[in-house]
Write a protein that binds this DNA or RNA. Structure first.
Lengths: 191, 191
DNA sequence: CAGTCTACCAAGCGCTTGCTTGGTTGGCAA
DNA sequence: TTGCCAACCAAGCAAGCGCTTGGTAGACTG
């Protein structure tokens, strides 16, 4: 059929569609046939692009986390004091969770358990870079007396609080994303 | 073989083992054969006790949430002011997540998406009773000026923060559960 | 403009899945 | 002591799974 799509574009489309389906139904309940249907291929043809179903999940996660690091680093690099930096990170993570990148990010938060142990380790190493950015900002905020709770603990509680928004928060509802970010910031910092 | 176990005991053992396996590997990656092995039955014999695999998950969730309501209600009924009540609820939820009940509770937090839509609705109705207890306590705390964030919002952020502890917190580590509960309480309330 | 190679299809393989069926056993009630 | 029935086993079925194989169309290369 349509063989005009260059190699990298096809792969990109595949990853996007995979992220969408894995987010919507979960990795385990998504079959390679469903994914193939979604991109207009026969199920076997997927394995021309990927070694295995798991390698698709792994690719989605790698691609997504790279993007998360990029966005978070950009937010951290913006000028401002420790409070403004912290607020920027909160907003950035919520935007990752609810913007155009949401499917991949949701998969990164809640589908990593479907990976083999070694693939999990691989992803964990990537994710560490993301978490480092967070910890630096939180330690700064801690030194400035902005937050009182231990930065590690704060981050882990925040990770859960943010990730869970997937299940209840919709940015087109009555509470817009900036307001939500503001509220979260208020909870974390001295009141 | 061992046919001495009365009906209800067998069912209870099955639910406990199912909760353990669903927590450890996820519902979708747990086969009925694995569950049957764990309780010393042939896979087909499970269907003498349950209609389907999904009905096992549903039973686990129902049983677990009933228990969660029980424990939370007990914590809410203890004497004390609104701060003490809030702290009691936090401790109760963390104990549910990390005590003897942890497998079922983990399944309740993270495996409900494997249910059919109507089963999810059924569980949601049960869960509402649990959330009501939380909201009453949070509204009280809000009226007393103890928390400044909207009770609904607070609860949803807290749900995620608490649920996520499954993935990083171990009560036998350097931070004991009461200390963790204390820190969470400190984050929520005026500092 | 012949040869190559990438991206695909059609078919299906081997295996696992949830679940069913038919028969057996042992405790218990009458 | 007989008859019943709940609780099981042994076997296997149909469907769906991830993935492989062999072949081919069409764009690109030399």
């Amino acid at each position: 059929m349509n063989r005009t799509a260059p190699r990298e574009d096809r792969r990109q489309l595949l990853l996007e569609e995979a992220a969408r389906l894995f987010d919507a139904h979960g990795y385990d309940r998504t079959s390679v046939r469903q994914l193939a249907d979604a991109v207009g291929l026969q199920s076997g043809s997927l394995f021309h692009h990927f070694d295995s179903k798991e390698s698709i999940l792994l690719a989605v996660l790698e691609h997504t986390i790279e993007l998360m690091i990029e966005r978070l680093a950009a937010a951290a690099a913006a000028p401002g004091d420790s409070r403004q930096r912290l607020e920027a990170l909160i907003r950035a993570e919520l935007e990752l969770l609810h913007g155009a990148t949401r499917h991949g990010v949701a998969v990164a938060f809640f589908q990593w358990r479907s990976l083999s142990t070694q693939s999990q380790q691989q992803i964990l190493k990537l994710r560490e870079r993301y978490e480092t950015i967070w910890l630096e900002a939180l330690e700064l905020a801690h030194r400035d007396g902005l937050i009182v709770t231990d930065p590690f603990l704060t981050r882990r509680l925040l990770t859960g609080a943010h990730g869970w928004t997937i299940y209840w928060y919709r940015p087109d509802g009555s509470l817009d994303l900036d307001r939500l970010a503001e509220e979260v910031g208020r909870l974390l910092t001295r009141q």
